[in-house]
Write a protein that binds this DNA or RNA. Structure first.
Lengths: 237, 237
DNA sequence: GAAACTAAGTATCATTAAGACACTTAGTTT
DNA sequence: AAACTAAGTGTCTTAATGATACTTAGTTTC
């Protein structure tokens, strides 16, 4: 048998393949809180429970796993998040009643304002504070996924400025520091935080300022590729 | 329709699900070199090319993705590696001619001596130096996988002693340092390397020594959970 | 319009961990 | 016994964060 024959025959076989889905833990920052996007399940299984946005891979529509994810997120939020990163793949016979299943989980970050409008109009899609999410009875093993995503986000906050993606394009340093503090769950040293960002030249001063009560804060924008930069040393836990 | 009916009906449907495999980049250290285990493909597609050890998830045999991996590795090497970690999941319509496919890739580490005997008896399973592997025409997208596994291993070598798992249970500090140097591709400061390991108390002195030419080196053993320890600062690249 | 207030941003010293490199030590070989 | 080799240590320098007090730029209050 040559290769062509083999492939042709293979494709006709009825395989006992696991179900494959892709899920996202989409974080944002709103009202001084870290929030996660959840969707209320309208169908079995786990009907009525909160779940992560996601869905089945479509062989015809999707050019890759990340494409599936982006398609699904666009359905729910109307926009494509500026930061998407693969997190971990969960698989096993009992995580979904429909059978042996796999989900490729992603972490994504987005500014709250970017998708505020589309979310508000759909009642079964909601931003929930991360602290509440952990106490909710989420569908499937989605709680494990959320927790792992958060762990990883904490690490990122200690050695990168990736968390900046939960903010709008321009933001102040105090805002960014607060985002990191909310993620890590501890206050940070203002000077240490700013020093390393300045040294690595990760932000551009837009020249504009924003004032609320005290001295106005300078507005910055992320430089190209700043998200890829890792400090050689972590901040203290 | 209630949930039971839904599930029952669901299971009978013939889904257009992607093929799901699991692959391992298994590293070891032998003859002062970092090596990777490869298998010569005996079947279509990509027949005759070198590929990563791995295979299809078995719904009946496997209790999870890692279980699939371990089953496959045991088939090839006869043993279960002491270090296994999920790396990344690759998926898309064109990486395998048989159709839309996914592979969940793992990194695994093992001492060369542990599986020497079983490997030697099978001619289509072979340890190849990492430097050579990169120039070989590997099957599927396995070269991408190998490269990503190596990148991650380099990082681990900079902030952990995970690479110790390519050595036998007891080893000397000069050996461990050399492993790190081979992985990173640069010499390291002896003092810096030792100081941090000592401070974090990651190794236990077995009391025994091993001599080759000069002063005999002390033999150490990894402490429980030492692989989970991350230094807060990276060594220089 | 000046003083008080508030939060942004800076200066500076202490601390910690790595880099560099010379030195000592414990065995083996000649 | 001297020379040799590689393991292991001492110590000073360098680099980055921690801690804390201070200055600055606007707003609010009287």
């Amino acid at each position: 048998m040559n290769e062509e024959d083999y492939i042709a025959r293979y494709k006709k076989r009825n395989f006992d393949a696991p179900l494959v889905t892709v899920d996202a833990v989409l974080f944002t920052y709103h009202e001084n809180t870290l929030k996660t996007l959840l969707v209320k399940r309208s169908a079995y299984p786990e009907k009525g429970k909160w779940a992560l946005p996601g869905g089945f891979v479509s062989e015809s529509e999707d050019d890759g796993l990340e494409a599936t994810l982006i398609r699904k997120l666009k359905e729910k939020t109307g926009v494509i998040p500026p930061y998407v990163e693969q997190l971990y793949t969960f698989g096993g016979p009992s995580r979904d009643r429909r059978g042996w299943s796999i989900t490729v989980a992603y972490t994504a970050l987005i500014a709250h304002q970017s998708c505020e409008i589309s979310i508000d109009t759909v009642s079964d899609v909601n931003w929930l504070p991360f602290s509440k999410v952990c106490q909710l009875p989420l569908a499937f093993d989605h709680l494990d996924i959320v927790n792992r995503a958060h762990e990883r986000l904490v690490q990122k906050a200690l050695y990168s400025i990736v968390p900046a993606y939960v903010l709008p394009e321009t933001f102040t340093l105090p805002e960014l520091q607060h985002v990191h503090e909310v993620i890590i769950g501890k206050p940070l040293q203002k000077k240490s935080f700013r020093r390393r960002i300045e040294q690595a030249n990760l932000l551009v001063d837009t020249g504009e300022k924003r004032a609320e009560k005290g001295r106005p804060a300078a507005l910055y924008r992320m430089r190209e590729d700043s998200a890829a930069y890792n400090f050689i040393r972590n901040l203290e836990l």
